[in-house]
């Protein structure tokens, strides 16, 4: 056992883990943050995406100890519980959500993009979410939701 210390959704946390734990399992099973999903466990679907020091990673193939001393943002870190984050709001309004299984990760990929590039082109948006499979919605409304957040 070892102690993983990281800044998680703005708060410093310490959690006892096995050195062989994956970040996804620590988030879901040790910290109860169920918004991060597993769809494949192999990096192929992106449902487990979280933001690690500003970059999206697939937490299912990320050793938890890679987060040591770093900042992790999961979907639970986006809204303060009262107001939805603008990206969350846009996803709801633009019909970007169907079954919702891909959604938390998709929103995080959108956030990582917009944080770096507030005025992405359609192609840049597509590429930014190209590691997040959505089988329900065909992506078009996800792109529209992200585009709606571009300030002219």
């Amino acid at each position: 056992m070892t102690v993983l210390k990281m800044k998680l959704n703005g708060k410093q946390v310490e959690v006892e883990i096995k050195p062989s734990d994956l970040l996804l399992n620590v988030l879901r099973d040790k910290l109860g943050l169920m918004g991060t999903k597993e769809g494949c466990g192999e990096g192929d679907c992106g449902a487990c995406t979280v933001i690690l020091d500003g970059e999206t990673v697939t937490s299912c193939i990320t050793p938890a100890l890679k987060a040591m001393g770093k900042e992790v943002i999961t979907i639970e870190g986006l809204s303060d519980g009262k107001e939805l984050h603008p990206i969350q709001k846009a996803f709801v309004e633009y019909g970007a959500i169907q079954c919702g299984y891909c959604t938390p990760a998709m929103i995080l990929s959108a956030k990582a993009l917009l944080d770096k590039n507030p005025t992405p082109t359609r192609e840049e948006i597509k590429t930014a979410i190209s590691g997040n499979l959505c089988r329900c919605g065909g992506y078009e409304y996800i792109i529209a939701a992200i585009q709606s957040l571009i300030k002219p």
């Binding site: 639970e76 996803f91 709801v92 959500i97 919702g100």
Partner: peptide, 12 residues
């Protein structure tokens, strides 16, 4: 707006 969509957008 779908109330359940709000839940999925927030991970709940």
């Amino acid at each position: 707006d779908r109330p359940d969509a709000i839940d999925s957008a927030t991970g709940k």
